[in-house]
């Protein structure tokens, strides 16, 4: 089923990303082995020139990866009409065994790419490119993931068989069943909501602390990254039920559908971006502060904390709105 325009677009994007990341990783190994700014050797000069190309190309790829994730999910949702039994993206992703892994790796790549972009931006701020080694080390780690994601995506789309009867989300995300989706759905909604809003309040407190001290930024980064998991559990176990106005439906993908006003995008986009930025903040503030960035990096971290906390606040507001606007009463 690759003769489908959005699928072709996704495959083109993944082919492009895979090639560039693979080449970039090879270069990254060279950097890890030979990078030495003090060296005046021709190889070092060549390498310094080449980093411009590789960084630019990777920057484009990473931005592309962020966009691909959204397009991938949106497309899976649209294709649900093509498969018997599928009602939303879950069904489409479950048509063959490659769909779900492809999606999960895409999510991982999203975070990796965002982290890479943040480190890259910080690296470009310093005169001596303090994070170059770290950046390319990260790339070498990220490359297998991007390549695996690309390969899985190809396998997934090549093996899409419209005759397969797939499982609907309401079958997977049910507390009665076995499996991780079912476990997530059966989390106690009350506890999940406490964790969600308590976690948000904690994050706001940490954001204020992060403005004062570097340790605060580190704590904020770690807490913000972990909060992502809390938020996903809360969405599956409680918030989604409020949106569907039925206590039995827990699917985290159906909320992306038009009949729910695309509210899922308003929940997920701020959440994903905020968590990714928090991850970047955490990594940058745990890594020793380079001399060349002594003045500028803390400023940059403040900005990032502000943006991230703002996005978390938007996420919280949307979740709260979804709960308050719902006619479902789960407690009391």
């Amino acid at each position: 089923m690759i003769f489908d325009p959005p699928v072709m677009a996704l495959l083109l994007a993944s082919a492009f990303s895979t090639v560039i990341v693979a080449l970039g990783a090879v270069f990254g190994v060279h950097v890890l082995l030979h990078w030495n700014l003090a060296d005046g050797h021709a190889r070092q000069i060549r390498m310094e020139k080449r980093t411009y190309l590789v960084s630019t190309a990777l920057m484009l790829v990473m931005v592309l990866q962020l966009a691909t994730l959204v397009l991938f999910v949106h497309n899976a949702d649209r294709m649900a009409v093509l498969f018997t039994g599928a009602m939303c993206a879950v069904g489409t992703l479950n048509v063959n065994e490659y769909g779900m892994p492809a999606f999960l790796i895409q999510v991982a790549v999203f975070f990796g790419a965002a982290l890479w972009l943040i480190v890259n931006a910080a690296d470009n701020m310093g005169r001596d490119y303090p994070y170059t080694r770290f950046k390319y080390g990260l790339l070498v780690l990220l490359a297998p993931l991007v390549i695996a994601g690309g390969v899985l995506e190809w396998l997934y789309f090549l093996n899409l068989d419209p005759n397969v009867i797939t499982s609907c989300c309401s079958k997977l995300f049910t507390p009665e069943n076995a499996g991780i989706q079912a476990d997530l759905s059966s989390a106690d909604p009350k506890l999940a909501l406490y964790a969600l809003f308590g976690g948000l309040a904690l994050l706001m407190g940490l954001a204020v602390w992060a403005m004062r001290a570097r340790a605060g930024a580190a704590a904020y980064g770690i807490a913000g990254s972990l909060f992502f998991i809390v938020a996903i559990v809360a969405i599956i176990s409680a918030v989604s039920s409020y949106i569907y106005e039925t206590p039995n439906h827990h699917c985290p993908f159906c909320i992306l559908k038009p009949q729910y006003g695309f509210i899922g995008y308003f929940l997920y986009l701020p959440l994903f971006l905020a968590s990714a930025i928090a991850l970047g903040i955490g990594v940058l503030s745990l890594w020793p502060l380079p001399d060349s960035l002594r003045d500028r990096l803390p400023m940059r971290l403040h900005h990032l904390v502000l943006v991230s906390a703002g996005l978390f606040a938007i996420f919280g507001a949307v979740a709260l709105y979804a709960i308050l606007a719902s006619h479902l009463i789960m407690f009391g």
Binding site: M8, L12, L64
Partner: peptide
């Protein structure tokens, strides 16, 4: 979705082709 598809299939080849010359 259509607009995104279109952007993907046109802008990616263009960018890929011009990247090295630009550098």
């Amino acid at each position: 979705l259509q607009l995104a598809t279109l952007a993907f299939v046109t802008v990616i080849p263009f960018t890929a082709a011009t990247l090295v010359p630009i550098w």
